[in-house]
Amino acid sequence: MTKSTGILIVSHVKEIAEGLVQLLDQIAGDITIKTAGGTDDGEIGTSFDLISDTLESFEEDSVLCFYDLGSAKMNLEMAIETTDKEVELMRTALIEGAYTAASLLQADVQPKELNRQLEKLIIKE
């Protein structure tokens, strides 16, 4: 059975986002993990439209979003402002944070405990 919370990975580089999903899939087979990497035309950067569409495509009502640099955060914030889903912007180191969240979600750890574990990985303003 799939879990009620999904994970979205936003990166400037498509392959970074997709590579991270490969890493997570190994330990979190029941979690929906999606990516929005690169711009619409496959260049390095981030795309509001791609992020927004990917967010909407989750069946889960709750999504944790991990991201890399600058515009990834700003575009995510804009997408979050325009969705009805319950979305959390995760200010952790991208790989370590997403890995921790995926492991804990797979193990049915409750949100409160999950956030406590992620707290020490926060590196972004």
Partner: peptide, 15 residues
């Protein structure tokens, strides 16, 4: 601008 710029200046000028 938000849709097409692809860098930080997109959401910034867009906003």
């Amino acid at each position: 601008l938000v849709s097409k710029v692809g860098g930080a200046s997109g959401p910034l000028y867009g906003s």
